[in-house]
Design a protein around this nucleic acid. Structure first.
Lengths: 186, 186
DNA sequence: GTCTATAAAGCGATAGAC
DNA sequence: GTCTATCGCTTTATAGAC
């Protein structure tokens, strides 16, 4: 992986992969230089705040992606159930059917939680809120919508944990299918 | 926390708390000495293999607890649904209604996954297998039992992630209640 | 069995040459 | 903008006094 990355923007997805694989603490600068092909000089030129800034940028990038591809479609699409189905498709694609875990989930369980409390909280809160809103538009009463939204988001995260632990992406695929059915049924 | 711990056995639960709070990488020896009140000399006297041995002992201890209080009751109790209810009660108590996260889950998402693949895999596989067995005894066909068992174990892990991320144990409590209903219904 | 001192290695971060 | 060399600190682990 000696490819030269043109600018700061191109580095972010690679940084995300490193944090995804190793967590915040485990993502050493040497691992980052290895994966990005950039020396420390370049990295600190792009991110003067060092590793903390790299993680913040990654979290912001993820938040932006979900905002654009998941949360806002959930909020905007008039047909609530159609919005939910689009969310499942985007989610399945994003997590590569369970092969990729969620960086925010990794941070939430790890030691980085205390450093990035706000971003971690904001990501999951926004997801639950957007999904609950779509379910209300689909006819659920607000309490049920809130509970079901929590169920789906937690179910996805749990499926990622279990898929990785068992090294079986089938868990993720089955979970997504089941959650789809749950929301469609009632 | 300057209490002197009598022997190796007494240290293990404290070690578990440190790994639970900080993950494997984040659990530095200085954090461990602070929480246990034991100097490095004592720690290496108890665990010659260092931090890796401490983590292995903690994982084995957790595995033993779940085997005794969750997996074996699930396998032995004749009435499958009664066994499942006992599991939920033990689980809720163990995770302090969502205030404690799962060390094995933390390891599964973090960098320690590669060091403890077998233990992480074994824990979740045993849980799913025991629960699926109880559900078969309760009348489910094997395929449905397997899927539902995955659903419950993943649901619990996901609820722990979300509870910690949102700093709201209500998510865990509601999830456990909902999973109970799911298994009771069909 | 527990402590302090210390070794060796890796960490994040910085400085300066180019 | 990118590299190499290096700083200061923390890490895990060990050695030796008590």
């Amino acid at each position: 992986m000696a490819r030269t990355l043109a600018d700061r923007q191109d580095v972010i997805p690679v940084l995300a992969e490193v944090f995804r694989d190793h967590g915040f603490e485990g993502a050493s600068l040497s691992a980052i230089t290895a994966r990005t092909g950039l020396g420390k000089g370049s990295l600190y030129n792009f991110f003067p705040g060092g590793k903390a800034e790299m993680a913040e940028v990654v979290l912001a990038h993820i938040d932006g992606w979900f905002r654009a591809h998941v949360f806002e479609p959930l909020e905007r699409t008039g047909d609530g159930l159609k919005a939910v189905e689009a969310m499942f498709q985007a989610t399945d694609a994003y997590f590569r059917s369970g092969q990729r875990v969620c960086v925010v989930g990794v941070f939430a369980l790890g030691d980085a939680r205390d450093l990035f409390t706000e971003q971690v909280h904001g990501y999951f809160a926004a997801w639950v809120r957007a999904l609950a809103g779509a379910l209300v538009r689909a006819g659920r009463d607000p309490d049920q919508a809130q509970t079901q939204a929590e169920e789906v988001v937690a179910g996805i995260q749990g499926a990622l944990v279990l898929s990785r632990a068992l090294n079986d992406t089938g868990v993720f695929t089955r979970t997504l299918a089941r959650l789809r059915r749950t929301l469609a049924d009632d």
